[in-house]
Design a binder for these strands. Sequence first.
DNA 1: ACTAATTAATTGTATTATACAACTATATAG
DNA 2: CTATATAGTTGTATAATACAATTAATTAGT
Lengths: 141, 141
Amino acid sequence: MEKSSHETIELEMAFLVRRVTSMTSSSKSLGMLDRSAYLFLHHITSHGPAGVKALADEFQLDISTASRQAAALEQKEFLYRIPDPHDGRAYSLQITELGLQEYLDYKTIRINKMKTVLHEWSEDDRMKFGELLRKFNRSFR
Amino acid sequence: MEKSSHETIELEMAFLVRRVTSMTSSSKSLGMLDRSAYLFLHHITSHGPAGVKALADEFQLDISTASRQAAALEQKEFLYRIPDPHDGRAYSLQITELGLQEYLDYKTIRINKMKTVLHEWSEDDRMKFGELLRKFNRSFR
DNA sequence: ACTAATTAATTGTATTATACAACTATATAG
DNA sequence: CTATATAGTTGTATAATACAATTAATTAGT
C-alpha cells in the first residue's frame, strides 16, 4: 500500500523538525541567535518596529514568551524600545545597528548551510521547494 | 532584488519549525506524544527493535537524551526492553501493543491535521512537497 | 464621568527537550 | 590480561516554552 501524500508530508515533517532543531542547536554554542530571536529580528527588519503583542501573534507564541525573548534581545542591545506615544502600556521594539549586524551575519551563516545541504539539487527543485514551503506556512495561519 | 532559492528556503524553514512546534505543543496537553517519542515509535514500528544508541544516531540526539526518551516510553509501557543476547550492555527496545495503538492513534491525528492544512492544495503540489521534504531530509544525513 | 471590562506587558513557576560530563558495566584489541 | 572503547544511565544545566497572577493603562457601558 502506497503512502498518501498527507502521510508522507506528516512523517517527513516530523523528521524535518528534528533535523533542523539539531542543526541549529549544534551551532548555538557560539553565541548564535536562537530561532525565535532570529525570527524576531527578521520581522522587525522587514516589517518595521513592532510590540511584544504583535510579535507573539505573528509567531503564535504566548505573550510571556515573546516578552522574555524581547527582553533578552534588548539586554544584548540588539533591540531597543520606545514607548508608544498613543498608548502608555505599549512599546515599539526597534532594531539597533548591532542587532542588524548580528541578524545579517547569522542569516549569511544559515544561507551557507542551506547551500551546502542543497548543492546537489537542481535550481528547479530548490525554487519549487521554497515556493511550497512558503505556501505551506501560509496555509497554517 | 529577488530572493535566491536558498534564501527563501532558509527563511521559510525558520518559520516552518516555529509553526510546527507551536502546532504540536498546543496538542500536547492531552497526553499526546511528543515529537521524539513519535519518531522513536515510528522507527521501531517500521524498522524493528533498536537500542538507545541506534535511535540516538538515527535522530542525531545525544545518547543521554535518547536514553531518557526511551525510559519515558518504557515507563508508559509503550516500549519494553529485552537484553541483547550477544552483548551484556545492550538492550533492544520493542514496541508494546499499547505503544502501537498510541502510535497509530497519534499518527491519525497528525494526518488529519495535515489534511486540514492542505485541503486546498492540488494533489500534484502535495505529492511534490512530500517528495521534496523527503529529499531534503535525506540531504541532511 | 465613573466604574467595569479589556489590553500590553512583566514576572513567577513549571515542564520539556536538549546537551555535556561523570560514571558503571561489559566487550574488544594490543 | 591490561588498556581502551562502547552501551547505557544519571546528575546537572540551559533554553524555549506555556499558564497563572499581577500591574498599569485604555476603552466601554451606563
